[in-house]
């Protein structure tokens, strides 16, 4: 169980979503999502495959646009932002993709340097190298700096992916299924990393998963998604005392295994 996190500012919401709807043709994916993320908080979004979890965080980072509803991030309405405003906002949101999404044509070091070079062109090389070293040390992979992504394992790629988003010092982290496809021990490592990132870089996070161990270890709050909306929110005990069929199935499946 995750220990109590003292640094959450309950009076300050960094992401606030109201009545969000999104369809792809006849496929109604999100049907009225409401969510508040407070500063310093980790929210875990649980739900079965295809319920629209990835779509939700893609809307938060403006990779997709909603059909209706509002998404407010750090006090800004995402949908109404102009090009430059969106650019500035995106620097404050870190998005960790399911498989790392590392740039295959670049080494690990270049992967980390790339967002810095682009977004902070005036940063000196020394400063950049220091930042890269700090981040690599934080994700525990300093020795891989010269390797190509193809030479890394799935877990290592994910860590570098997390590192690459950390390099821009975001205030918000969005994790898309951090434990997917990893063995339980590596999962535990990633979970610890997520908690460490929360503490050390003072981030607020949304963590998407269908892994209860991850939810339990990283979530200050758990929100369960079913058929395009949240059916239950609260801490781990609150959510799993519920008798909803999906929640029971989730619980049984994860712990009987």
């Amino acid at each position: 169980m995750k220990p109590f996190t003292p640094e959450i500012h309950w009076d300050e919401t960094v992401i606030s979503i109201r009545d969000l709807y999104k369809s792809f043709g006849q496929n109604h994916v999100l049907r009225g999502v409401n969510l508040d993320l407070h500063r310093g908080e980790n929210i875990v979004v649980l739900g079965r495959s295809g319920t629209g979890k990835s779509v939700l965080i893609k809307i938060i980072s403006a990779l997709l646009y909603p059909d209706s509803g509002t998404v407010n991030v750090l006090g800004l309405e995402v949908e109404t932002l102009k090009h430059d405003e969106l650019r500035d906002l995106r620097l404050k949101i870190g998005f960790c993709f399911q498989n790392g999404a590392l740039y295959d044509s670049m080494t690990v070091g270049e992967n980390l340097a790339f967002p810095l070079r682009r977004n902070m062109p005036h940063m000196s090389k020394k400063e950049r190298d220091e930042r890269i070293a700090t981040v690599l040390e934080a994700v525990g992979l300093s020795q891989t700096i010269k390797q190509m992504p193809a030479e890394l394992s799935g877990g290592q790629r994910k860590r570098i992916g997390i590192g690459r988003t950390l390099i821009l010092r975001p205030e918000i982290m969005l994790y898309d299924e951090p434990p997917a496809g990893l063995d339980p021990i590596t999962c535990t490592d990633i979970n610890n990393l997520i908690n460490e990132v929360q503490k050390r870089f003072k981030t607020s996070s949304i963590i998407i998963t269908h892994d209860l161990a991850c939810a339990k270890a990283t979530g200050d709050k758990i929100a369960v998604m079913k058929e395009g909306r949240f059916i239950k929110e609260g801490n781990f005990e609150e959510v799993f005392s519920d008798n909803d069929e999906l929640i029971r199935e989730f619980y049984d499946y994860n712990f009987i295994q």
């Binding site: 990779l63 650019r87 995106r90 620097l91 949101i93 993709f97 399911q98 498989n99 999404a101 967002p115």
Partner: peptide
């Protein structure tokens, strides 16, 4: 296409590139 399907293009987009 391979950058697209492995989400590398999205990754650039979200890091403001």
């Amino acid at each position: 296409a391979s950058m697209k399907v492995t989400e590398q293009i999205d990754a650039m987009e979200v890091s403001a590139i």
